[in-house]
Amino acid sequence: MEIGIGAYVVLSAVLFTLGALGVMLRRNAIIVFMSVELMLNAANLAFVAFARQFNDVNGHLFVFFVITVAAAEVGIGLALIVAIFRTKKSINIDSMNQLKG
């Protein structure tokens, strides 16, 4: 059975929505961060699906760049989460309330 481009696009939209909801609803910094990664991968899936549809290499190439950037982001993100944990003993986003006004 042939799975059409539509199915991939719908799946990527669903993943993107789940990721966005996760960012907005969850309070644990690591879960929020994982949700962001889910959104990036939703975009990756869309790129690959479209690239296959157009038979064009640029979309595949874009995905490699996104994966590389996401890896750098993971490195920085986890380091920042460690830093905030050392100062506040918590990674709950609601505990980050020292700066406001």
Binding site: F16, V23, V36, L40, E73, A83, K88, M96
Partner: peptide, 28 residues
């Protein structure tokens, strides 16, 4: 400073993920 960094990071990566999805649609 740590709190400012993590807030910048979480909002920033969220915004660039949203933008990337927009770019993927343009490519599509």
């Amino acid at each position: 400073s740590a709190e400012s960094g993590i807030k910048y990071f979480l909002f920033g990566s969220f915004a660039s993920a949203i933008m990337l999805y927009g770019l993927s649609l343009l490519y599509g």
